[in-house]
Design a binder for these strands. Structure first.
Lengths: 120, 120
DNA sequence: ATAACATATGAGCAATTGTTCATGTATCAC
DNA sequence: GTGATACATGAACAATTGCTCATATGTTAT
């Protein structure tokens, strides 16, 4: 635990106990990074549409591009990103690649966010 | 509802019924934008730390900067962003500004994400 | 009034991001 | 084999982002 210094900030600590309390409750660096990365992955309109689409049905890249009226390349780039984040998974079948949500948790997170947005 | 054209994509529609089904289930543009914006607001390590801190206690900018070991200016900029998104709210008191989470929903969303990240 | 402090904010800049374009790989039909 | 199709991917480029720096605003103390 670091001493309560101001470091390079311009102002001083006002409530020393609060600062200490918050520092003790701090998440570890890995959790912060991972959590931010998951939210960031969901934080783009195109990827929101993709996840929404895949929540309806498993889909191939081709159909996704058509449904979202986007380039196959653009969709493919985003699919790779979502797959790297383990948000979606791929099933190969012949020359087609079928994508689907990797986990039910993702849908829960997605719908929690949607609920927040639509209720107000 | 648009006809099932390929638009500027390179490939054709494979499963016409699936594409139609996905298009019918599509979110309206505003919901897509709002949802992406909320997730994007949570999708940054600094803002994750800020929200975590404010989940412990209401805090002034000064203490937040000290707790996160960041510049007052950097924190202030992010606070403005979060406030514009209605994720946090401000309570003025003298020359101090106390920030806190705007809504319990935010904490639910935050913890749902955290749960997803820590369980695997 | 003057100084000190808490905070906000605009400009600027490096880093990241989302798309397009061109091209590569893999599978199928012939 | 050749061509067509489904998809992946690197490069490039414009747009966005998160910070720093300087400065402005507003409150308190003297």
């Amino acid at each position: 635990m670091q001493p309560l210094e101001t470091t390079d900030s311009c102002c001083n600590v006002i409530h020393e106990d609060t600062v200490t309390q918050v520092r003790e409750a701090a998440m570890d660096e890995q959790a912060v990074t991972d959590l931010a990365a998951i939210f960031a992955a969901l934080g783009d309109p195109t990827r929101v549409r993709i996840i929404r689409a895949l929540s309806v049905s498993e889909m191939c890249v081709c159909d996704l591009a058509a449904a979202l009226e986007m380039t196959q390349s653009a969709v493919s780039h985003q699919l790779r990103l979502l797959r790297n984040m383990r948000i979606i998974k791929r099933r190969k079948s012949g020359r087609m690649n079928y994508y689907s949500l990797d986990d039910e948790h993702i849908l829960t997170l997605f719908e929690t966010g949607l609920h927040h947005v639509t209720h107000r």
